[in-house]
């Protein structure tokens, strides 16, 4: 049996918001260590890897591994009904047909209970070996979201170029071009505002802007985002959770 209680429903709301536009159906795999999701978008360009660690829950119990096949659009309709500050509890039997979603208001004696029908989903699980990256950038997630939104208005591609001194985000469209250059710096007072650039080899990669626009929907999960890049390889974009992470792997574009 699974019984997981969150101190606030806001974490699950943000997680669902962050992934629902990339994938529609996915298995939530529940183990004694927490909840994981791995899912690939229909075009097989973007992969989502989520870990909500046991410590993200106020109370957590999962005696046997349980798979919850969830339609995220339906789940989102239910999860939106809770207030962000409500306790949120997920309950499922060992071989469940549905999952119970319970919201409890902390001040009033109001309990809202919903049941979501589960689906039997096939999922190709992809093997992601430990990848070696040539460059790692950590920056404020809101700044990365703004750069993405701004440059996406010019072109359907977004180029990321990393040199020793800086990282350049660039787009080249029909009516014009744009770029944003960031240098590494340390903000002692607000560490989350810092920009850290680690580069072993220079990088020049191009990605589909629409996919990065989906990735930045994770912005509300974390103050900062880490971007890991390697030549001619998928990039990794990571938002850290209080215990766990939301990672996106995005395949690059190549010259034909």
């Amino acid at each position: 049996m699974l019984e997981g209680k969150f101190e606030e429903s806001s974490l699950m709301k943000k997680v669902v918001d962050a992934i629902k536009d990339s994938v529609k159906l996915c298995n939530f795999n529940c183990t004694e260590h927490g909840v994981t999701v791995q899912a690939v978008d229909d075009s097989r360009v973007l992969l989502i890897s989520l870990l909500i660690g046991e410590a993200s829950f106020e109370e957590y119990r999962c005696d046997r591994n349980i798979t919850l096949g969830i339609d995220l659009e339906s789940f989102n309709k239910i999860i939106k009904n809770g207030n962000s500050s409500d306790f949120l509890t997920l309950i499922a039997e060992d071989s469940p047909d549905n999952v119970l979603i319970i919201f409890e208001d902390k001040k009033k004696d109001r309990v809202s209970e919903y049941s979501l029908k589960l689906m039997d989903l096939d999922s190709d699980f992809l093997q992601i070996d430990d990848m070696e990256f040539d460059a790692t950038i950590t920056m404020p997630s809101s700044e990365f979201a703004k750069i993405t939104r701004d440059l996406k208005t010019l072109s359907e591609s977004l180029q990321i170029i990393v040199t020793k001194e800086n990282v350049k985000f660039s787009s080249d469209g029909d009516f014009g071009t744009g770029n944003v250059v960031l240098k590494g710096f340390v903000d002692m007072d607000k560490p989350d505002e810092s920009i850290k650039i680690d580069m072993a080899r220079p990088i020049n990669l191009t990605f589909g802007a629409k996919y990065i626009a989906d990735i930045v929907k994770g912005t509300s999960l974390s103050e900062s985002v880490t971007i890991k890049l390697a030549d001619k390889s998928p990039a990794l974009f990571e938002y850290k959770l209080p215990s766990g992470f939301l990672r996106f792997y995005l395949a690059p574009k190549f010259d034909e």
Partner: peptide, 14 residues
């Protein structure tokens, strides 16, 4: 013109 790569070219099925 650049062509979008698939993740399947990089990651194997388990």
């Amino acid at each position: 013109k650049k062509k979008q790569a698939s993740l399947m070219a990089f990651f194997g099925k388990k």
